[in-house]
Design a protein around this nucleic acid. Structure first.
Lengths: 221, 221
DNA sequence: CAAGAAGCTGACCAGTTGCTTAGGTTTTGC
DNA sequence: GCAAAACCTAAGCAACTGGTCAGCTTCTTG
């Protein structure tokens, strides 16, 4: 059992007693922590900065969370819960074009509405996945192979071109998460104050068109 | 003139006198700094960590570089020099399929050989481009529009499908840089010690095939 | 070979880091 | 309405942060 597992179990059991105030403040702290971690990564974020953003004294954070790592792990846990669910909906029986278009749309919506989650995840991976090492275990690899198998089945059935499933998944992940992680580059290129809803719409449309056609699929609807 | 410009000019003029020892040590420090910044970002990296990696006393770093920001800016400058050159080679007169395939290949080679540069850039953008704010100026936007115009011209000439140039560029950047920035996730999914040359080859092949076909282009050669 | 330039670094500084503790206040359940 | 549980936080800890500086050694050059 590594650091991640240990801290996870610890915080999980600690969550038994959920006082009203506790729940409110934990959410407040987690939210502030997410914003800081998304911008500065684990090492670059200070407990003081989180406390200031949350509007609470620093010592209060240590009342609710054992330590900085525990807080970080909890933030990461919240993200991972949402993260993979959307992908689970793709099944062999789906129509590839419709399912793929829906998945791209869902990922883009996620980038638009939860950019912080994507950024924290990105920073964690770039930094070497120290905290996520437990997440990327044999179970995860099994899950990933299952997801890739869906694309493989579609190819084998002649429903789409024979495209390496793993790299196709990377292509989709990279191109959609880009709109969250690199939003600052995008808004500076477009010269806008922020990436607009319209940018996301056009991005979704372009990605869907290029990727689907690139896999030999007809645009649905 | 902002912080970036100021520090840039400062270091540029300071580079006039290039003693033999100076050049050797500056490279040593820049290399060590790049590794640390790539993993922990600007705020998360300490001068001490860089010094340890370089095998030099901390005070020595401050002999060659005015301060932490100056060192960071210098690292970033080295990256930006390489960064955009490959993209400048695409011109309207090129054959779209050949040029695009070559660009994807070049970007993937860059991800394979200079993953640190990509990671530092990614971290900087995720962190809000504070240091790059000077880089993403009107000149840069002009340059970007020029690059996008190439794709637009190809579309207008009927050489490829009418695909939004900006989002196509983002698609290529995201999917290729992914192999550098997210290499740790990839190697954990594949269960390997590191991302292999073969992974890069298959990735390049998949990206080229999907993106070109997705733009209505025939694979060259 | 001498003297000035370049290179080097231990010791130190003020400020910040994550975290603890002791002793308080407020809320809750009976 | 009272005791126990939950909640709160000022003050302070050792370790570390970026950065300075005085005085040293090594190199270069006439």
């Amino acid at each position: 059992m590594n650091t991640f597992d240990a801290t996870l179990a610890q915080t999980a059991t600690a969550g038994k007693r959920t006082g009203r105030i506790r729940q409110k403040n934990e959410e407040l702290i987690l939210s502030a922590a997410a914003e800081e971690f998304a911008r500065y990564g684990y090492k670059g974020t200070s407990m003081n900065a989180i406390a200031l953003r949350a509007g609470l004294p620093k010592a209060n954070l240590h009342y609710y969370f054992t330590n900085k790592l525990g807080l970080y792990v909890e933030v990461m846990r919240h993200i991972l819960e949402l993260w993979d669910n959307a992908f689970d909906h793709l099944t062999v029986d789906d129509d590839p074009a419709i399912a793929l278009a829906a998945y791209i749309r869902t990922k883009m919506e996620f980038s638009r509405r939860q950019p912080q989650a994507s950024k924290i995840f990105a920073m964690e991976v770039i930094s070497g996945c120290e905290c996520l090492s437990a997440h990327f275990n044999e179970d995860y690899r099994e899950w990933f192979r299952g997801r890739a198998a869906v694309f493989q089945a579609w190819s084998d059935a002649g429903k789409m071109d024979p495209v390496d499933p793993m790299h196709l998944i990377f292509l989709i992940w990279a191109s959609t998460q880009h709109y969250a992680d690199f939003s600052d580059q995008i808004r500076r290129i477009t010269g806008q104050r922020r990436v607009t809803r319209d940018d996301f719409a056009r991005g979704t449309e372009t990605l869907t068109r290029v990727i689907l056609k690139g896999c030999g699929l007809q645009l649905p609807g």
